[in-house]
Structures are given as structure tokens and as C-alpha cells.
Simulated scan of single mutants.
Amino acid sequence: MNDVISDILTGLGLVITLGGAWITARAVILKEADAINVGISRWADEEEEKNVELPMVQNLLASSRGARRGLLLIAGGTALQIVPIAFRLISLVIA
């Protein structure tokens, strides 16, 4: 297999990895209102500010922040791996 095909397949694999990470993180990243709806008891307070302080809501929001950080790290690492491949492929097209 020549270098061009190898670079194309590697780049495609990295894009698929990035897409999979995004889909996975999207499943657990919550907005504050969503965390309140999932994490409150049925006898919750009417004010959202008080409901945000509930332990279950805080747990959901902490998980969401972790998923967001993980997605950013995976996306950044994938982007750093794609850059040299893209430069190599572009230089072949221009030359």
C-alpha cells in the first residue's frame, strides 16, 4: 500500500473516531434544565435555582462536564493527528 492510500485511510479513521466520540458525548452531555428534569423528585421545588442544588442534579451535571472535557481532548488529539496527514496530501496535490 502506498503512502497516499495509507494517509487517506488514516485520516478517514481519525474522522470516524472524532464522529464516534461526538455521538457518545452527545448522549451524556446535559443542559441544566434536562438534568433538573431527570434528577429531581416529583415533589421538587418550583424554583430551578433550588433544584440545581439537589445531589442527583449535581451528579448529572458533573458527568456532563466530564463528557464535554473528554470530547474536547479526543477532538484535539484527533485534530493534531489529522494536520500532518492533510499537509502531506495537499502537498502531493499541489506538486
Rank of each mutant, 00 (worst) to 15 (best):
N2M: 09
D3C: 02
D3M: 06
D3Q: 10
D3H: 05
V4T: 09
I8H: 05
L9T: 12
L9I: 06
G11E: 08
L12I: 11
L12G: 15
L12E: 15
G13K: 10
L14Q: 08
L14R: 02
L14F: 05
V15S: 10
I16M: 02
T17S: 11
L18P: 06
L18H: 14
G19C: 09
G19Y: 08
A21G: 11
A21H: 04
W22M: 13
W22K: 12
T24W: 06
A25C: 05
A25M: 02
V28T: 15
V28M: 09
I29G: 01
E32H: 03
E32M: 05
E32K: 11
A33I: 14
A33S: 14
A33K: 15
D34E: 15
N37I: 08
G39S: 09
G39R: 08
I40F: 02
S41M: 06
S41G: 11
R42V: 10
R42C: 00
R42G: 00
W43T: 12
W43M: 12
D45V: 09
D45H: 12
D45A: 11
D45G: 03
E46F: 02
E46N: 08
E46H: 07
E47M: 12
E48T: 12
E48G: 06
E49C: 04
E49G: 05
K50L: 13
N51C: 12
V52N: 00
L54W: 04
P55M: 08
M56H: 13
V57C: 03
Q58V: 01
N59Y: 06
N59M: 11
L60Y: 04
L60R: 04
L61Q: 04
L61W: 04
A62D: 15
A62C: 03
A62H: 06
S64I: 04
S64P: 07
R65P: 02
R65C: 00
R65V: 02
G66N: 14
R68C: 03
R68K: 04
R68M: 11
R69S: 06
R69T: 12
R69Y: 11
G70W: 05
G70D: 06
L71E: 00
L71K: 00
L71N: 02
L73Q: 02
L73D: 01
L73K: 07
I74N: 01
A75S: 06
G76P: 01
G76K: 01
G77S: 08
G77W: 00
A79F: 11
L80N: 03
L80T: 04
L80P: 01
Q81R: 08
Q81V: 05
Q81L: 14
I82C: 08
V83S: 06
V83N: 03
V83A: 13
I85D: 06
I85G: 00
I85C: 03
A86I: 04
A86H: 01
F87T: 15
R88W: 11
R88L: 12
L89Y: 05
I90F: 05
S91D: 13
S91Q: 14
L92T: 10
L92K: 14
L92A: 14
L92G: 05
I94E: 05
A95V: 07
